[in-house]
Amino acid sequence: MAADPKAMKIEAARAALGHVEDGMKLGLGTGSTADEFVRLLAEKVAAGMKVVGVPTSVRTEQLARELGIPLATLEEEPALDLTIDGADEIGPGLSLIKGGGGALLREKIVAAASKKMIVIADESKVVETLGAFPLPIEVNQFGLRATMIAIEEAGRRSALTGEIKVREKDGKPFVTDGGHLIVDASFGRIPATKAFADDLNMIPGVVEHGLFIGLASLALVATPGGVKVIDGKH
């Protein structure tokens, strides 16, 4: 397999397709790798496979709709068989950092509503300790400064320091599909991932954070030598 990043994303997505069965209710992730899965899934649907997709973002919804994949909302299908999604980082025990695409809240809700979550990525996303990728934290617009101070304090309690800033797009604050802002915390390595996640959960202005712990059951990681399967024991 070529080490071309796009080709590797497609191979990881193709491997995930092998876990999809006729009649499944699927959570459809957000991001460039998830997009490749949606495109491959659409080919199966066109060939007669029956599935229903629940998209994790407006972006994924638009792509899936254009490609003819039958869609439902989580209200209509609150219990899903499988979610396929990408990740910004994959750490030990299939802990993840997600949210680079800005859809982390909906991604986490959909993943939690699924019996199983499979992560697809290329090998550059696999790390020994999470945190080189800035941690996205979705926050309420009300009380933004107070929330940012609370995030900084939570970081200090876990011996984490670094720049935290409101994500911008086209010179304006980036607004999520849910109407919130995203704060990107460049704290570096986060050894005590669970403790820090719990601390963030206690901040009232934090809607959700990009630490996904205990949600993924499998990762399909594309390498130049083929697709590697990582389970939760990694």
Rank of each mutant, 00 (worst) to 15 (best):
M1W: 07
A2N: 14
A3P: 14
M8S: 09
I10S: 08
E11K: 07
A12L: 09
A12Y: 07
A13S: 11
A16S: 12
A16Q: 12
L17M: 11
L17Y: 11
G18L: 08
G18A: 12
H19D: 11
V20T: 00
V20M: 00
E21G: 08
D22S: 12
G23P: 08
M24S: 02
K25F: 13
K25A: 15
K25G: 14
L26R: 05
L28P: 06
G29R: 00
T30H: 03
S32N: 12
T33M: 03
D35I: 01
D35K: 13
E36M: 12
L40Q: 14
L41S: 03
L41K: 04
A42C: 10
E43D: 15
K44D: 08
K44F: 02
A46F: 00
V51W: 01
T56V: 00
T56I: 00
E61Y: 09
Q62R: 15
L63S: 06
A64G: 12
I69P: 13
T73V: 09
L74Y: 11
L80C: 13
L80S: 12
D81V: 07
L82T: 07
A87V: 09
E89I: 11
I90Y: 07
G93H: 10
G93F: 03
L94V: 09
L96Y: 10
I97R: 08
I97G: 07
K98H: 08
G102F: 04
L105H: 08
L105E: 06
K108A: 01
I109Q: 00
I109D: 04
I109G: 01
A112H: 01
A113F: 02
A113C: 06
K116Y: 14
M117W: 05
M117H: 04
M117L: 15
M117P: 13
I118A: 05
V119R: 09
I120A: 11
V126N: 08
E128S: 15
G131M: 00
G131S: 02
A132F: 02
P134L: 00
L135I: 04
I137L: 03
E138L: 00
Q141C: 08
Q141G: 14
F142Y: 14
F142S: 12
R145W: 11
E153W: 01
G155V: 03
S158N: 14
S158K: 06
A159T: 11
A159I: 00
L160Q: 03
G162L: 11
I164Y: 10
R167H: 04
K169M: 14
D170W: 07
G171V: 04
K172W: 05
F174I: 05
G178E: 14
I182C: 07
I182V: 14
D184W: 07
D184Q: 09
A185C: 13
F187H: 02
R189G: 04
A192D: 15
A195V: 07
F196T: 01
F196A: 04
A197M: 03
A197K: 09
A197N: 10
A197H: 10
D199T: 15
N201D: 15
P204T: 01
G210W: 03
G210N: 11
L211Q: 05
V221W: 03
V221N: 06
A222K: 01
G226W: 04
G226L: 05
V229E: 15
D231L: 05
K233I: 10
H234E: 15
